[in-house]
């Protein structure tokens, strides 16, 4: 990730959630993190289980960035084990970003989930419906677009797919969380959804209409995009900034397990 400032800034404090953590589905090894300017001051796990690193650069600088390299073994399992239902309540309720409006409510009424007997089946159907009816297109939404606005507009990117799916699942009282991560290949970071079913978190990717498998590496999860900001910072300076993120996931070998 690289951030360019149009002028120099100082007193820059940052929190990064850019390091994938071990889950039942993935094992992360050989992690190498470098931040420039190099000023990491601490590391912790946030309330959603995400690895967070903090830092502070006092001196003037006109760019900021980080590189993370490592190896992930994926597909170790089809789901992540989850806590009991009463422990995941915070993921069951809408946030400001996922709060449904007319479009989301209409969408949910149009599709009956009566045939589904579990959260997993419901989430799967919601994902398929959304994938069929919402168009992937860059440029019609931005970082702050809410689920309702995106669905109303009819198109968006992975972040919007995920937010709309969260909104729809929460309407059905399914605990579900936003996931930031990576997919095999080169490109940008990706976003998808995990839905809770019987003490399991199951990943659904509404952008691609796929259940999450070994092609995915998860970085962080939370109630919505805001909990999973890869880079969050405040600094002193009057600038415009531009951010570029590049993600490269190469396959090393296939793990075969029966």
């Amino acid at each position: 990730m690289k951030l360019l400032f149009s002028n120099e800034v100082k007193e820059h404090r940052f929190s990064l959630k850019c390091i994938p953590h071990d889950t039942d589905m993935q094992k992360i090894e050989n992690i190498d993190v470098s931040v420039f300017p190099d000023n990491i001051t601490g590391k912790d796990i946030d309330s959603h289980g995400n690895i967070t690193i903090f830092g502070y650069t006092k001196e003037l600088h006109d760019s900021f960035g980080f590189d993370v390299e490592g190896t992930a073994s994926t597909g170790l399992k089809d789901f992540e084990s989850a806590k009991e239902l009463h422990m995941v309540g915070m993921y069951k309720y809408q946030t400001k970003i996922t709060a449904p409006g007319e479009s989301v409510l209409d969408f949910s009424k149009k599709h009956s989930l009566e045939s589904c007997s579990s959260n997993e089946e419901k989430a799967l159907l919601i994902m398929q419906n959304l994938n069929n009816e919402f168009e992937y297109r860059q440029g019609c939404t931005d970082m702050d677009t809410k689920a309702e606005e995106a669905l109303k507009g009819g198109c968006g990117v992975c972040q919007d797919f995920a937010h709309i799916m969260l909104s729809l699942c929460r309407l059905e009282s399914i605990p579900c969380r936003y996931v930031t991560g990576m997919m095999i290949g080169e490109g940008r970071s990706h976003a998808w959804v995990e839905a809770w079913d019987d003490n399991r978190w199951i990943g659904f990717d509404p952008t691609n209409g796929k259940v999450v498998n070994d092609e995915y590496i998860k970085i962080s999860n939370g109630r919505d995009f805001r909990d999973c900001l890869v880079n969050q910072g405040i600094f002193t300076g009057n600038v415009t900034q531009s951010q570029t993120i590049s993600v490269i996931v190469n396959e090393e070998q296939n793990l075969i397990h029966d």
Binding site: D46, S47, H48, E84, H86, M87, G89, M90, Y93, D227
Partner: peptide, 29 residues
Amino acid sequence: GEKKIIKDKIVPEEFIYAGSGYLPQCEGI
């Protein structure tokens, strides 16, 4: 922490999570 009072259904969970007083950032602290 453990949320026993929710599990035992003494307090309905919407009074916790749909209110503005609950801060998810404080989970586990």
